[in-house]
């Protein structure tokens, strides 16, 4: 505990207990959206207030926290949340996926395989996958209750009708253990296969919408599709220009105004580890030292 006027991890113990109950219920009913009394956090909605509350409820003083935003540890959102917990909980932090016990993420699943004992906390803007086509909350809850999920395929149908292929590339809907249809948060559909059968606990927090849902370890998660338009976990058809990785999810970076661009791993920790291990991409420089990078 830091010598501040805050309780450990900012939230009071009663609130954390309430959130833990929602998390446990979510784990007991995989994919089901559990309502919870989301608190005002010292950051605006859309900056991860749901994820932060879930993380706060899970943190213990012995935990090591990693925070990523779009795969990167060094963007504003990730840095501010990491600092928030360093200040309010005094926990250790890391950028290395395999060193972290709790990872809060916005819009990505790390490339490195997760392991048992790890918790991955997703920040979720809109937890309701049916919202796009059915605006009534009463009706969508009824649809979940009765497993009326035809509408979800209407969304995919519209995609194919308009684009010739399922153009949904992120927040791609999934079905959990053959029961609940779930929004996996705006992760790229490239990450969808990693949702399934993961050894880690996956928790989803939506602060503004006041919902928590969860995937316990080794949960079966299937991406919805059509028989004649099967799900494909696509990525940019390139290798990383820095580390040469051919299987990681890439960001496109515009490098000048002459049309120059490069593709780099969105997972900065994964890319750094590869370069330190001697891998070099098209535009990369050989193995910068860890000290230099920091």
């Amino acid at each position: 505990m830091t010598a501040q006027d805050y309780n450990f991890a900012y939230l009071d113990e009663q609130t954390k207990r309430m959130i833990r109950r929602a998390i446990l219920k979510g784990i007991a009913v995989p994919g089901y959206q559990v309502p919870f009394a989301s608190r005002e956090m010292p950051m605006p909605y859309g900056w991860g207030t749901g994820g932060v509350q879930v993380t706060a409820a899970c943190l213990t003083p012995d935990d090591t926290l990693k925070v990523i935003d779009q795969g990167a540890d060094d963007t504003t959102n990730a840095v501010s949340i990491r600092k928030f917990f360093q200040r309010t909980a005094g926990v250790a932090v890391t950028e290395a996926t395999d060193q972290a016990s709790i990872i809060q993420t916005r819009h990505r699943i790390p490339e490195a395989p997760l392991t048992e004992g790890q918790i991955l906390v997703y920040q979720v803007p809109i937890p309701e996958p049916l919202r796009f086509l059915e605006p009534r909350e009463t009706e969508t809850r009824k649809m979940h209750e009765l497993e009326e999920y035809g509408l979800m395929h209407v969304k995919l149908y519209e995609d194919i009708a308009r684009h010739g292929t399922i153009a949904t590339s992120y927040a791609y809907p999934v079905k959990v253990e053959g029961r609940y249809v779930m929004d996996p948060s705006p992760i790229p559909k490239f990450d969808n296969p990693k949702l399934s059968d993961s050894p880690a606990i996956q928790l989803f927090g939506a602060g503004r919408e006041q919902r928590i849902y969860a995937l316990p370890p080794y949960t079966q998660v299937v991406s919805l599709d059509f028989d004649d338009h099967p799900f494909v976990a696509s990525k940019a058809d390139h290798d990383c220009d820095l580390c040469g990785a051919g299987t990681s999810y890439l960001d496109e970076v515009i490098t000048d105004d002459q049309g120059g661009r490069m593709f780099v791993c969105s997972d900065t920790d994964f890319c750094r580890a590869r370069r330190e291990a001697g891998h070099v991409g098209r535009l990369g420089t050989p193995a910068p030292s860890l000290e230099a990078a920091q």
Binding site: G150, L151, V154, Y157, E158, I160, A161, D227, D228
Partner: peptide
């Protein structure tokens, strides 16, 4: 569903009862 194409409107009931072949639904 005013925001869904004519084909999607007609196809919804089929998908609701388990149709999963885009070409056939269309």
């Amino acid at each position: 569903r005013m925001g869904v194409s004519a084909g999607g409107n007609v196809g919804e009931r089929l998908m609701a009862i388990g149709a999963r072949h885009y070409g056939e639904i269309r």
